[in-house]
Nucleic acid binder design. Structure first.
Lengths: 107, 107
DNA sequence: ATTATAAGACACCAAAAGGTGTCGTGTCAA
DNA sequence: TTGACACGACACCTTTTGGTGTCTTATAAT
C-alpha cells in the first residue's frame, strides 16, 4: 500500500472513497491531528495514517508536527489537474445533449 | 481485475493511465473496434479488452457488435460526477490565490 | 469448404492495495 | 520521574489489479 515513489498520481490518490472522505473532512477545518481524523472512520489509526501518507505523496495534504501530534491540512491545488482533464470531456456530454435536442425538435 | 459488480466507481475507472488514454483515443473518433485500439498500446489484446470492460462497467464506454468485431464508443456523461466533485474544491485553490494577492498588495 | 480473423472466456501469475497488530520513540501531564 | 498518549515504522495477511497465454466460437474472405 505504501509507496516510496514520492510523487503519486493525483487520480490514483483520489480513486479511493476513504481518501475522498479525508479530503472532505479536511476541507471543513483548518487542520486536524491524526487521532481526531481517525474517529470519523471505522478502521484503525494505522490505516488512516497510510491513506493520509498517500494523499501526502500526491501533495493533496500537508503534514505539520506540533508537539506530539501531526496536524494534517488540505492542499487542493493538485486537483487542478483533474479539473483540467475532465473539462476537456465537457464538450462531449454537451454535444450529446445538443443531439438529443435536435432529435426532439425533428419530431 | 475483472469485476462483475456491474457498476464500477467512475473515479476508480479513471485512475488508471491506460484507461485515460483509452478515453482520449475514443474521443477522437466515432467508434473503434478492439483490434484497432490495441495497436496504440504495448500490451496484449486481452489486457486492453479488460480495461475496456472496466470502462464499460463504469458506463464510460459503450460496446456495439458489428459482424465479427466489437466497436467501442465513448460516453463521457459519467464524468460529470467527477466534474461536480472537483468543482467543490475549486474554492480552495482560488482562496489561496486571493491570499497571495493580499500579501503582494501589502508590500 | 476451408482458412484466417475478431474477440470473449478462462486459468494463471506477480505485484500492489488495503487492512491488521505490535513495537519503539518522542512528548505531555501528574 | 513515571505514566499515558500520538504516531511513525514494520511485519504480516488477504484481496484486487494488471498483465500473460490458451481455447473456443462466430464471422469473413478465398
Amino acid at each position: 500500500m505504501n509507496d516510496n515513489s514520492q510523487v503519486r498520481d493525483v487520480y490514483d490518490a483520489v480513486a479511493d472513497p476513504t481518501r475522498r472522505k479525508l479530503l472532505q473532512i479536511l476541507a471543513d477545518v483548518d487542520e486536524l491531528p491524526l487521532y481526531e481524523i481517525t474517529v470519523h472512520f471505522e478502521m484503525g489509526r494505522t490505516a488512516v495514517s497510510k491513506h493520509l501518507s498517500i494523499l501526502k505523496d500526491a501533495d493533496l495534504v500537508v503534514a505539520r508536527k506540533v508537539g506530539r501530534e501531526t496536524r494534517y491540512r488540505l492542499n487542493a491545488n493538485p486537483l487542478k489537474e483533474i479539473r483540467d482533464w475532465v473539462s476537456f470531456y465537457e464538450g462531449f456530454w454537451k454535444e450529446r445533449i445538443d443531439k438529443l435536442k435536435l432529435l426532439l425538435e425533428e419530431e
